[in-house]
Design a protein around this nucleic acid. Structure first.
Length: 559
RNA sequence: UGGGGCGUCGCCAAGCGGUAAGGCGCGGGUCUUUGGAACCCGUAUUCGAAGGUUCGAAUCCUUCCGCCCCAACCA
């Protein structure tokens, strides 16, 4: 095996970076940045970008900056800048001391604009917004030059200064790059660089009433930070000529960044646009940005996802330019795999059905020491009490079981995990025929769950001692939408919300070791799935969120 | 008949002229005190289509077809 045989396959971006590094472009330096706009919470799509940007920096011995693209004060807020920092750190990445804000560059950006004006490469346009749109032309028809395009440099300089000084109302003037109104690329038809906006900025306050546009601020910010590879999503592909134009035409820039575009992440059964997520929060369809139904990092975290699982997911999906929709099943696979390895097991009965062991001595209690993980002794053991009265899962019993059902049924023997083999002797019902409880007998010789005579039992059930059970609330989560691609076609995504995405169960019975979990503590509830203690839980009454169910191979499930 | 992208298995994704990696999913099996986990097999004669170049094409050329993005003083 040669080294090449083992070389990791690089995505197209890492190939470019590797080639640049090998050829000495940027003196072999690699610098990326993650540039969120603080106008919403980060979601799993951002995780892809974070893993890419920080990952490329890590793989090539470079750096990755965190930069807030805060050029539009009307939609941005410090609540978002705080949550974004928390989420990036939680995901496991560090920007060290390289935390930047586009707003920190406002003065510098302004100076660059003045330089462009002096070089006759930008002008103040006084057309109305409507007229600017009108003059811009259409996809097929070229635009027309604004009558203000030929304004003398001196006049542009004076007007631009007065725009900054606050002498004009919003919308009165804009600064535009002087490029080409006939360009087939609409982005190049004298793009707007600055607009007058009397808005309070979350960081600069009222210092400015003139704010730069993304298309202008972004490439220059990249250059200021000497970013080498500026990674963004596909919709900015058309903007790259403008990016390059600015890098080439603004004099005195310290860096020559290169923009490379990749396809954003789409996931089935959810939405990823910040606009739609905001709407879900504001209209109360979910309980907040960190609602465990949300694809936000804070939602996934509260749901019980680990950062490792999300990073693994981002590795699995790859990076390319092809539009993609990832099956949410892959995300679930990644959490299960991670949680399976690390989660201590415990028993919890979600929908309790009482079981009385008739031949078990009244008042007796036993204590079983049970391993917390079947394949990892390092996770230790816990003590699980057993008694005459127990709870089992209601759907682990069927009075008239179909062929494939091999759990408890009248006359049938099953194992209670870690305890005994029990046989169902009698079904107690109320007047309406509702099953109230089961009468069973146990075989004292099967203590621990093994039958000395070697007889086999088809099923093992989880259970909780009634006398020791801890009552809990358990929140069952499912996919947020009923459609694979919400909002596709004519559909209004809100009409495709899954009404059963959250099911709240109360009166769930937990084994005592689960009585007072730390918020965020994760367990596998045996045979049910992975659960995470929610912050809403109190010491006396824990609340658990179901992260994901266990994989279930049962061909057909009755009822 | 404006411009920019993209089309390899159900979903992702390698492949970079030498004879279709891998993951998820799916099907089958072994094992099992979680119908979990683990393990083992199987799952594209074919790369959007058609022509062409070549000893040889998913990779090169031509044409065609399909999908996505762009006409915010949003990012």
């Amino acid at each position: 095996m040669s080294a090449q045989d083992e070389a990791p396959r690089l995505d197209f971006i890492r190939e470019i970076v590797a080639a640049d590094q090998a050829s000495g472009t940027h003196q072999g330096r690699v610098a990326t940045r993650f540039p969120p706009e603080p106008n919403g919470y980060l979601h799993i799509g951002h995780a892809k970008s974070i893993c890419l940007n920080f990952g490329v920096a890590r793989d090539f011995g470079g750096t990755c900056n965190l930069r807030f693209d805060d050029t539009n004060p009307v939609t941005e807020d410090t609540e978002y800048v705080d949550s974004i920092q928390e989420d990036v750190q939680w995901l496991g990445f560090s920007w060290d001391d390289r935390l930047y804000y586009a707003s920190d560059y406002f003065e510098r950006l302004y100076e660059c604009a003045v330089r462009l004006i002096r070089d006759d490469k930008a002008y103040v346009d006084s057309l109305t917004a409507d007229d600017i749109r009108e003059y811009r032309g259409t996809l097929k028809d070229p635009g027309r030059e604004s009558p203000y395009r030929s304004r003398p440099i001196a006049e542009n300089l004076e007007l631009f200064a007065r725009m900054r000084a606050g002498e004009f109302p919003d919308g009165a003037h804009v600064l535009r790059a002087k490029i080409d109104m006939a360009s087939p690329n609409i982005t190049m038809r004298d793009p707007i660089l600055y607009r007058v906006r009397r808005a309070h900025h979350h960081r600069t306050g009222d210092a400015w009433c003139l704010y730069p546009m993304y298309d202008y601020a972004h490439p220059l910010s990249d250059a200021f930070e000497q970013i080498t590879h500026s990674l963004c999503t596909l919709e900015f592909e058309d903007h790259r000529p403008l990016y390059d134009w600015l890098i080439a035409n603004v004099t005195g820039l310290p860096g020559r960044p290169r923009q490379i575009e990749f396809a954003r992440l789409n996931l089935t059964y959810t939405v990823m646009s910040k606009r739609k997520l905001l709407q879900l929060v504001e209209d109360g369809h979910v309980h907040g940005w960190d609602d465990p139904r949300m694809p936000t990092l804070s939602g996934l975290r509260r749901r019980g996802f680990t950062a490792e699982a999300i990073r693994r997911f981002c590795d699995e999906i790859g990076v390319a330019k092809r539009e993609n929709v990832i099956d949410v099943g892959l995300l679930e696979f990644c959490v299960r795999e991670d949680l399976n390895a690390r989660s201590p097991r415990a028993m919890a009965v979600l929908r309790p059905l009482k079981v009385v062991i008739e031949n078990y001595p009244e008042g007796q209690t036993e204590d079983f020491e049970v391993a917390s993980h079947p394949d990892n002794a390092a996770l230790g053991t816990r003590h699980v009490p057993f008694g005459r009265e127990l709870f089992i899962e209601r759907d682990d019993f069927l009075e008239d079981p179909p062929k494939k059902f091999f759990r408890l049924a009248p006359g049938r023997e099953v194992r209670l995990r870690g305890a005994y083999l029990v046989t169902c002797r009698e079904v107690i019902k109320d007047a309406g025929g509702q099953i109230l409880e089961l009468r069973c007998t146990y075989d004292p010789l099967t203590r621990g769950g093994d039958a000395p005579d070697g007889r086999k039992v088809k099923a093992t059930l989880h259970w909780v001692s009634a006398a020791h059970a801890v009552d809990a609330e358990v929140r069952l989560y499912d996919r947020l939408f009923t459609h694979e691609m919400p909002g596709s076609g004519q559909a209004d995504f809100l009409t495709q919300l899954n009404p059963n995405a959250l099911e709240v169960l109360t009166g769930c019975k937990l084994e005592p070791s689960l009585a007072a979990p730390a918020a965020g503590a994760r367990f596998q509830f045996e045979r049910l799935g992975y659960f995470c203690a929610d912050q809403d839980g109190a010491a006396s009454r824990p609340v658990f969120n179901r992260t994901v169910t266990l994989r279930d191979n049962r061909a057909t499930l009755p009822g």
